[in-house]
Write a protein that binds this DNA or RNA. Structure first.
Lengths: 143, 143
DNA sequence: AGATATTCGTATGCATGCAAACGTTAATTA
DNA sequence: TAATTAACGTTTGCATGCATACGAATATCT
């Protein structure tokens, strides 16, 4: 390999730069489809709480969605403000609050599911179906 | 396709969810390698200003890095605070300020280049070299 | 049991990132 | 030329996201 190739550095070919732009694009597509201001992270959080192990503590939920405690606090507060999840004291552990979805939250998940499916499709639209599967597989391997 | 397949929705297989985690992972790797608190976006901005068309307006620079005007304002302010770029009035357009890198900024780019190369490698480390190339190509196509 | 670790939720500060609104200036159009 | 439109930079408000620190409660270890 020659030295000139070593010096070569193009922003458009760096994973980090491209990941940032791809993420921005997805969030933009998400916002287009979801009218009521629910964010991608808020949906993920709500979905995890509903479809995973059910009621759990705030920090546990955050971990399942890939958020640290500080971020989780804000997301959960907003979901509670919207009346999509609820909080009650854990009788066995005075530090914890158990979180669970409300009826309104569960209804919103069902209403939103077709749209989030469409969002995934739209995000992958520039790729052929085969490329899309490849891409998602590589993304999973990367995580 | 059966109805049960249509109902199927797994968070770990959604592009948006995976993109968010992949981006988080990259930013974490970036922070590990760069000691002085320079962020990924700040490096991209500095690099663009130095290696692209040279001195340009704030909004133009932001566009080249994929930031809106509000975000650009903050990033540029921080780069100026660190003494990495400088701002001077554009004599031909009273609205504009022309931005350019300082000597300190250019020196920092050269010092940082080997490290950002390593960051890209580390981010792609879970993939084979062939997969890594595929992944970057698909990311580019997606953007 | 008592000392130490860890976990829980919380709070603050900082950095992206977008929407929206704003005054100023330049470019376009009628 | 006059009116309109567009671009420039700025500010505010809100949402993620991380580091750090904190008191309270639980777990673990000696």
């Amino acid at each position: 390999m020659t030295e000139s190739q070593e010096q070569h550095y193009v922003l458009e070919e760096q994973v980090g730069y491209l990941l940032r732009l791809a993420n921005q694009r997805h969030l933009s597509i998400f916002a287009e489809h979801i009218v009521d201001g629910l964010t991608s992270v808020q949906f993920s959080t709500l979905f995890r709480l509903r479809k995973e192990a059910g009621p759990m503590s705030q920090n546990a939920l955050g971990r399942l969605v890939g958020m640290d405690a500080a971020t989780t606090k804000g997301v959960v507060s907003r979901l509670i403000s919207r009346g999509l999840i609820q909080m009650e004291k854990d009788p066995t552990d005075k530090r914890r609050y158990m979180l669970s979805t409300t009826q309104k939250g569960r209804a919103l998940i069902e209403d939103t599911l077709p749209r989030v499916r469409q969002i995934s499709e739209d995000t992958l639209a520039p790729l052929t179906p085969h490329e899309a599967k490849q891409f998602v597989a590589l993304l999973k391997k990367l995580t």
